[in-house]
């Protein structure tokens, strides 16, 4: 018995020390791995962007620096094509309209289906995810005749929002569905009903405020999609920021403009998304 006790007791401090030591070593190794992965992926993303930035600032002679390519974006006036500022304005307006329409369509519908017509949930999901499976070019072929009619009445590029709402559906739906499933919608809606709330109050004063994060995510995704959309606008002969930047790069003899426009487009989207995300976080902080 004594032998067993001594055998059991003697190595105990070492046993106790080992897991701690092993854990520390493991933690260090994990940290190193984390930094390596982060650095490799960081370089993978940042290097091309830096190269893009550098080429956009290339002077007339190789190896010199100049802002010529950036100035040409601002000063460009294409024939029959709206200038850059107008394209930015249209894109921002499109983004706002698309976001509003998508949210107005999706949020109440999804809540209502969850609360009152659950059997429709699967159909709704399939319908919303469908645009993911349809290539943009096929969408354009389908939308072409409709937009030809619209152009016949000489309506602005803002009419693109119909197509963009369809494109944004899968992303917005997924973000909102995740938010809805995180809330016990049935119980809180029943609690609100028992306290005398109408269905309108239940949806907009009880459930929607609890989906703020999901709505913000859906808005960010929709916003990003509209800012980066090129194919549909270009093929339907409308002009938005991406189409305009493409026109500038194609119609300017300076090769540097190709890089400056691409870089400008990226920066524009990045800064806007950053602002939107920051505003959302600040509001959450206050709530």
């Amino acid at each position: 018995m004594a032998a067993i006790t001594s055998l059991g007791e003697t190595p105990a401090p070492a046993e106790a020390a080992r897991p701690g030591g092993m854990q520390a070593r493991r933690r260090r190794r994990l940290n190193v791995f984390r930094y390596v992965v982060f650095t490799v992926f960081g370089l993978f993303f940042v290097l091309p962007l830096l190269a893009l930035g550098r080429f956009s600032l290339e002077g007339a002679k190789l190896g010199t620096w100049a802002l010529t390519a950036w100035r040409q974006i601002a000063s460009y006036q294409g024939s029959g094509i709206p200038p850059l500022l107008s394209a930015i304005e249209i894109t921002l307006e499109l983004a706002v309209i698309t976001c509003v329409v998508t949210m107005v369509l999706l949020v109440p519908t999804m809540i209502w289906i969850r609360l009152r017509v659950k059997w429709l949930a699967r159909t709704m999901e399939i319908l919303c995810l469908l645009p993911l499976t349809i290539p943009a070019i096929v969408l354009v072929v389908g939308l072409g005749p409709v937009y030809n009619k619209i152009q016949h009445y000489e309506l602005s590029s803002l009419m693109l929002f119909w197509a963009y709402v369809i494109l944004a559906l899968p992303y917005a739906y997924r973000a909102l569905a995740a938010g809805l499933s995180a809330v016990d919608v049935e119980t809180i809606s029943e609690a609100a009903r028992s306290l005398g709330a109408s269905w309108f109050t239940v949806i907009f004063r009880v459930i929607v405020p609890n989906m703020r994060q999901a709505i913000l995510n859906a808005l960010l995704l929709t916003w990003a999609l509209v800012l980066g959309e090129f194919t549909i606008a270009y093929l339907l002969l409308y002009s938005n920021l991406q189409v305009e930047l493409y026109s500038i790069s194609r119609n300017t003899p300076n090769a540097g403009v190709l890089f400056s426009t691409s870089f400008a487009a990226l920066l524009f989207a990045f800064i806007l998304l950053l602002i939107l995300s920051f505003v959302g976080r600040r509001r959450r902080g206050r709530g």
Binding site: V183, D184, T187, I188, E190, A191, A192, V206, P209, N210, R212, G287
Partner: peptide, 9 residues
């Protein structure tokens, strides 16, 4: 209710 039903916001 059985489940916690307070409005989280």
């Amino acid at each position: 209710f059985q489940a916690y039903s307070l409005f989280p916001h």
